[in-house]
Write a protein that binds this DNA or RNA. Structure first.
Lengths: 226, 226
DNA sequence: CGCACGGTTGAAGCGGCTCAATCTGGGTGG
DNA sequence: CCACCCAGATTGAGCCGCTTCAACCGTGCG
């Protein structure tokens, strides 16, 4: 993208709003209007099940789009909530369409962003299908740490991680109770520590090994940063 | 899309090839060149794990794209194999790029196709994370049956389903042994029957109920058909 | 004929779940 | 400043779904 395109995008993000934690950006079934860009804070997308269970599908960190598809398809199939107090930029649907009309560069950027998201979704499926609780949680922590690092919000072995054990459980498909036990075991084994909304990686090598963290996948995440 | 666009796409699909079952379309780590369109037969995308396990990420039926991103990102993060003998159309990368240059309509069509794929991936995550073996298998069968019906390859209660129990296990994240037991229980309860490469739905209502099959998700799948 | 692959079945073990109680720290009202 | 409350973290005990291991069957095919 050239400067002009960047300028257009930045310009589009001027409609900013501050939201408290636990605020719903979109509910499943809503008529999709605006697109969101996270400027500050955390949010997540999730789906509810008939039995009241919840499955978190993605975490949104500062700089992330709220899945663009929401403005394209007529119906939404999942919801978004803020996890922390957050600042988001709103892009009305019309403006979104206008951006796409301008030229292929921006459209392609959106498209490309989709591909990265898909890659994350695929990794998520692998975690759910083939990894143990321990591996899943380690993998999630790796992913989130790397993403935080890519946007300059992590230092060497530590970063902010405002996730409740219940939220983690909903993300990795486990019980909060069991998440707790796994976190404890990782703590006593001096692999990583998660407390007070902050993640500390004590043994990066071992953590990556437990997680089976894919360098290829990681690479792509890193490229997203530039 | 107008007729001209459709013509361009159809024209792009002239490079056709017949492949045997078990043929790898792409291997993880390959340098991505062509894009594939399934014309006939089944294929699937999957990822291998260090321990030798396999997780299937998507099934490709006639009419499906082989994930477009493969031609966009430089590295591939998963592989594709044919499940049955198959006929595929090859789109060289350059031709793909050319199609995108032509105009926003086709680009947007690709983009939109991505969104549908993402929706399926999300549903898959929900299955893995929050559903029992029985529910997962029922859901997979619902999805595949609907997709077959959308492309005119299913009749009222029956369709082709050339999946081995091992393949199903790799898709839903279970053991082949357990898949077998679940299939048996669904059979004796007269819900559905899967044998000899063919699926028969005996009690559609009960099957959908077990699967927790989402009408919204279904709706979008149906729209893909037009 | 025999081999190989996919389906079928049984027995035993374990990872993660359920239920339930206790603990902790931060916030709130008095 | 204290009593209280509440959400989240922690821990224990028992159970169940799914896995593991292992054997056996059926069938298509070289």
């Amino acid at each position: 993208m050239n400067d002009a395109d960047v300028g257009l995008l930045a310009d589009a993000c001027r409609n900013v709003r501050d939201l408290p934690a636990g605020h719903h950006l979109i509910m499943e079934g809503d008529n999709p209007d605006p697109v969101f860009v996270m400027l500050d804070g955390w949010a997540c997308g999730y789906k509810m099940l008939p039995d009241g269970g919840r499955q978190i599908l993605a975490f949104m960190l500062p700089g992330d789009f709220c899945d663009i598809h929401i403005a394209v398809l007529r119906a939404i199939d999942h919801s978004f909530v803020t996890i922390t107090p957050a600042r988001v930029a709103l892009l009305p649907r019309a403006q979104m369409e206008a951006l796409v009309e301008i030229g292929p560069t921006i459209t392609r950027a959106f498209w490309w962003s989709q591909l990265v998201d898909q890659s994350v979704l695929r990794a998520w499926i692998v975690s759910m299908g083939r990894r143990t609780a321990r591996e899943r949680i380690a993998h999630l922590m790796c992913e989130l740490y790397i993403r935080m690092r890519n946007i300059g919000l992590a230092n060497d072995a530590n970063c902010n991680m405002p996730l409740t054990q219940l939220v983690i459980a909903d993300a990795v498909g486990l019980t909060p109770v069991h998440v707790n036990r796994v976190l404890k075991s990782l703590r006593v084994e001096k692999v990583m520590e998660l407390s007070a909304g902050s993640l500390t990686i004590l043994d990066p090598v071992q953590l990556a090994e437990i997680a089976g963290f894919d360098g290829n996948y990681l690479h792509r995440r890193l490229r997203k940063a530039d």
